[in-house]
Design a protein around this nucleic acid. Structure first.
Lengths: 215, 215
DNA sequence: TGATTGACCGAATCGGTCAACTGGTCATTA
DNA sequence: TAATGACCAGTTGACCGATTCGGTCAATCA
């Protein structure tokens, strides 16, 4: 653990021989495994994904997986965490500190809505947590929620200090934003059939919550 | 079905003899059954409530229940629907048309938070749907969601026409209000341990969403 | 005579068992 | 020496008899 909010794994077990590393073979194997596992987790969920299956799709022996990841759960965590890291850095990248709060919020939201594949993974995991309550999935989703809510809350806190946003409890508002986002992106399509247009969702947030937050 | 949004059952099977009806005995039996079933559904949920149990609590023979309700699911629907009707009329009662939108919204929200404490039924059903996915409960909760979202959307539409609320898609905003409400009332206590104070929730809504909706 | 009842029935559910599967290891291989 | 897949122990879920439950109806009651 470090103080930045991310868990940085101790990767002692990843020790490349120079030749292999130079030829890029080891990284390819690792990447293939992650790619295969990501696809399988997205399609079948955590529990229904077998390590044999991952090995087969990645075209490696099962034992090879265990030279990179100490067990199934760690492979899973690595995938979900790097997904979240990627989303976070893209969000940061799209936020221009010079712009007003509402525009920044709108742009960040639009950027998040672009992550279709990542949404597919999270959607599958949420489904699995609802239907079979896999413990590893439950724990991971809680971590994801904390991570995202914490991120949003941090941004809100700064905006409040800058006087751009009226004083409020950033944690609660961030929680509301996150849950509303999930409701529209994941739950609405499930019960109402058709997913909402990205623009529709972004405009809705912009015209209600983002507007209501302004100082 | 009729057009008003409620299902009005064809009650051909309820034919009172004049004497019994005058003595109020038939209505008492029906009420006792509904009371017993409401208590049992609230305490144990739909699946764990047996018809023998309901008959015992209501102090009637099991067969008597089937003279009023054609099966367990219909009894259940009758109870949930009348609970929703009650919620609806309590909400209507607390809304003073003369008051400004934000105050009405705030008061209705407070009333709902209060209602929830007195009526454990819906909370129990949400718990059951999450834990054992009883189909009858799932279907009923979807109907409840539609009913409530429709109700809120109607109020919003009127407020928009009155010029009190800025133009927006009432269905989407109502959905967001409903889902946020559930997030704070049901999910927050589950993952964060302590439930939020009613006042905290109501103020949060008031200071963000309700404010953002104003024309 | 018509309302009420609870014993009864078939269907659904439960708990217990065991074969099949899965995560993880490690001796063998190239 | 990195990669592998046969192998092992622990877990799972398909299967099955026993039990419970929703719903019926002939007998009872007022």
């Amino acid at each position: 653990m470090n103080g930045s909010g991310y868990n940085v794994e101790r990767n002692d077990h990843i020790c490349f021989s120079v030749t292999q590393f130079e030829r890029g073979e080891t990284m390819d194997r690792r990447k293939e495994i992650i790619l295969a596992a990501t696809r399988s987790f997205s399609m079948f969920g955590y529990k229904a994904t077998t390590m044999d299956q991952v090995a087969k799709i990645a075209k490696v022996g099962k034992g090879t997986i265990y030279t990179f990841f100490s067990n199934k759960e760690e492979l899973f965590q690595e995938i979900v965490r790097s997904t979240i890291r990627e989303m976070r850095s893209e969000a940061e990248a799209v936020i221009d500190p010079e712009e007003p709060f509402r525009l920044k919020a709108h742009q960040a939201l639009m950027k998040m809505l672009e992550f279709r594949e990542q949404h597919a993974l999270l959607g599958k995991l949420i489904e699995e947590e609802k239907e079979i309550r896999t413990q590893a999935v439950q724990e991971m989703l809680l971590e994801v929620e904390d991570e995202i809510v914490g991120f949003i809350a941090g941004k809100l806190k700064m905006a409040i200090e800058r006087g751009e946003v009226r004083p409020c409890d950033p944690k609660l508002v961030a929680y509301m934003l996150f849950k509303s986002y999930l409701a529209f992106v994941i739950e609405w399509p499930e019960t109402r059939g058709e997913p909402l247009k990205e623009e529709t969702i972004a405009n809705l947030f912009n015209e209600t919550l983002f507007r209501g937050l302004l100082a």
